[in-house]
């Protein structure tokens, strides 16, 4: 009997010890460590790549910087760990990184089988086609009979086959082993069309000898929603990561930018202004305790925007039309402007 009680007690203690970390450990670990550890790609133009000074930049990098800004009010308190696609999920599971912001596609199997949680979508990617402007194409549906340069052994190959079959079009696949060979073959005129994920198309286009002679066709033929990933079970940290992205989208919706956030926050000290702009008041933390609910301070959103900017600013700075990549907002525009970026209300 005694033995059984002892066993039970041990089991209960062990159970507690195991259950404990699931609740709120990651955020506490980050604050004690004084640094967020963020898994990024080993170099993907516009999403996470080091610049000539060795500073990480990109759309995914901005997610990490925004989280660091919300926690520490300092976007430099991030350690970036470049991870290959082979070891990215292992690195997250083994607690080597706090989160992944590494152009990972959200799929059901990854969400359920790997002990991970996707917290949102910071870039709606999908497979697209690039063709020479001189062909005067306006849609991928006009590609009947075209030869298509594809990297072999990827889902890209399968998606292209599906697309052409579904639309009853004939096509001639020309396959290569590496991305580099594929783009070079396309550049030399081996095939009419080049296909891969849209973000990749824009990055590869820079490697063409005359980038402006080529255009990306508007059709997106597969769904590749990319977003940050956290470990399964720590819901507090997952919430924080999720709402940091939403805060950046909300800021764009209500017109808060890096330039005007300080002024807007200052205005909210006036009770009258606060009453007239309830959304803004909640956003800057002048009303409610939304930051505390997330485990950070109430001016969390102001910190994010001050250091990183809103979603639109981050997009334009890293991949937008004024950068060499020149990606149009498309699906990543706000829902009010024909895109899919939508934030639940902060209230």
């Amino acid at each position: 009997m005694t033995l059984r009680i002892a066993t039970f007690a041990t089991a209960a203690i062990l159970g507690l010890a195991v259950a404990q970390p699931a609740s709120a450990q990651t955020l506490r670990e980050i604050t004690t460590r004084g640094q967020l550890v963020c898994g990024v790609s080993q170099g993907l133009a516009g999403f996470s790549n080091p610049d000539a000074q060795g500073r990480w930049t990109g759309l995914d990098v901005d997610v990490c910087r925004a989280i660091a800004a919300a926690i520490f009010d300092d976007p430099t308190k991030v350690r970036f760990v470049p991870l290959s696609s082979a070891n990215r999920f292992t690195a997250l599971q083994s607690r080597e990184v706090d989160l992944l912001a590494r152009n990972s596609t959200w799929t059901l199997s990854r969400d359920t089988q790997l002990g991970l949680d996707f917290t949102g979508i910071n870039y709606y990617d999908g497979q697209a086609f690039m063709a020479r402007r001189s062909l005067r194409l306006s849609s991928a549906l006009e590609l009947g009979g075209a030869s298509v340069c594809i990297q072999t052994g990827t889902t890209t190959e399968l998606n292209a086959a599906d697309f052409f079959r579904a639309n009853n079009l004939r096509f001639e696949p020309v396959v290569f082993a590496t991305a580099d060979e594929t783009i070079k073959a396309y550049d030399s005129g081996r095939c009419d069309v080049f296909t891969t994920d849209a973000s990749g198309l824009y990055a590869e286009r820079l490697k063409l000898s005359a980038p402006n002679d080529h255009m990306v066709l508007p059709e997106i033929i597969s769904k590749e929603p990319l977003g940050p990933v956290v470990r399964h079970g720590d819901n507090q940290f997952a919430d924080l990561v999720r709402w940091v992205h939403f805060a950046m989208v909300t800021a764009e919706e209500i017109g808060v930018t890096q330039a005007n956030v300080a002024a807007k926050a200052a205005e909210m000290r006036n009770a009258e202004v606060r009453r007239r702009n309830p959304d803004l008041a909640r956003f800057v933390g002048a009303d409610g305790t939304f930051g505390e609910m997330l485990g950070v301070t109430n001016d969390w959103a102001v910190r994010i925007i001050r250091h990183v900017g809103n979603y639109g600013e981050s997009f334009e700075r890293n991949v937008g039309e004024r950068t060499p990549l020149g990606i149009r907002r498309g699906l990543n525009n706000l829902w009010t402007k024909g895109g899919l970026q939508y934030s639940p209300p902060i209230r």
Binding site: Q42, G43, L44, A45, G46, N49, P50, D51, A52, V81, P82, L83, S84, N87, K184, D187, A203, L206, K207, L208, S209, T323, P324, L325
Partner: peptide
Amino acid sequence: VGLVDFLKAVDMSLVNPVWATP
């Protein structure tokens, strides 16, 4: 192992959109 040695640094600089050309 995720270390950025000389060759990897060269490799990483290739994706920098500021300098990407053929």
